[in-house]
Simulated assay, not measured.
Amino acid sequence: MPIAVLQKSSCSVARSLSILGERWTLLILRVALEGETRFEVFRESLGMAPDVLSDRLNTLVEYGVMTKEAYQEPGSRTRYEYHLTEAGRELHVVIGGLQQWGDDHMPWDDGPTVVRQSRKTGRPVRVAFVDERGREIPLDQVETLHTAAYPA
Results as ranks from 00 to 15, higher is better:
V125R: 04
I95K: 01
Q117S: 11
L20A: 04
R77G: 12
R89F: 02
S76I: 03
T144D: 00
E132N: 10
A32C: 05
V41W: 02
F42Y: 14
S54R: 09
A149F: 13
S18P: 02
K8A: 15
G97D: 13
S9H: 09
H146T: 11
W108R: 14
A152D: 12
L84W: 07
L139K: 06
I95P: 07
L17Q: 06
L57V: 08
Y63P: 00
A49F: 06
D51M: 09
Q72S: 13
G21Q: 03
W24L: 07
G47Y: 12
P74N: 05
G88N: 05
D140H: 10
S76V: 04
P112C: 05
V31P: 00
T147C: 10
F39E: 10
R56S: 08
P107W: 04
Q99Y: 06
G111I: 03
D109I: 10
S10Y: 09
G102E: 15
R89K: 11
D51E: 11
G35R: 00
E143C: 05
V127L: 00
Q100R: 01
P50L: 06
D104W: 04
E69H: 11
G96R: 00
V115M: 08
Q7T: 07
V114I: 15
V94I: 14
I137G: 05
A87E: 12
I137H: 05
A149V: 12
R89M: 11
D55F: 00
W24R: 02
G47K: 11
G47H: 13
L27F: 06
V114R: 08
H92K: 00
Y150V: 13
D103T: 09
A70N: 07
H92Q: 12
P2I: 13
K8V: 07
R133T: 12
L27M: 07
Q117T: 03
L26D: 00
P138M: 07
L139V: 15
T147A: 13
A148I: 12
E132Y: 11
E44T: 11
E44R: 12
T85F: 00
P112D: 03
E36A: 12
D109Q: 14
G75I: 03
R135L: 04
S118G: 05
T25L: 04
E136H: 00
H92S: 12
R77V: 14
I28N: 02
L33R: 01
D103I: 06
I95W: 02
G75K: 01
T85V: 13
L145F: 09
E34R: 03
R38T: 09
R30M: 06
P2N: 15
D110V: 10
D110K: 14
S18A: 15
A70F: 10
G122D: 06
E69Y: 04
A128R: 05
C11K: 09
G96A: 14
M48D: 03
E22V: 02
T85H: 09
H105D: 05
V125E: 04
Q117H: 07
V94G: 01
G21H: 06
L20T: 02
P151E: 00
E136D: 06
R77K: 15
A14K: 09
M66I: 03
V114K: 08
A4R: 14
W101R: 04
V142F: 07
V93D: 11
L91S: 02
T121C: 04
P107V: 06
E136Q: 14
S76K: 15
M48V: 13
T85E: 00
L20C: 04
R56I: 10
E90N: 10
G102H: 14
T147H: 08
V125A: 01
P2W: 12
R135V: 07
T113S: 08
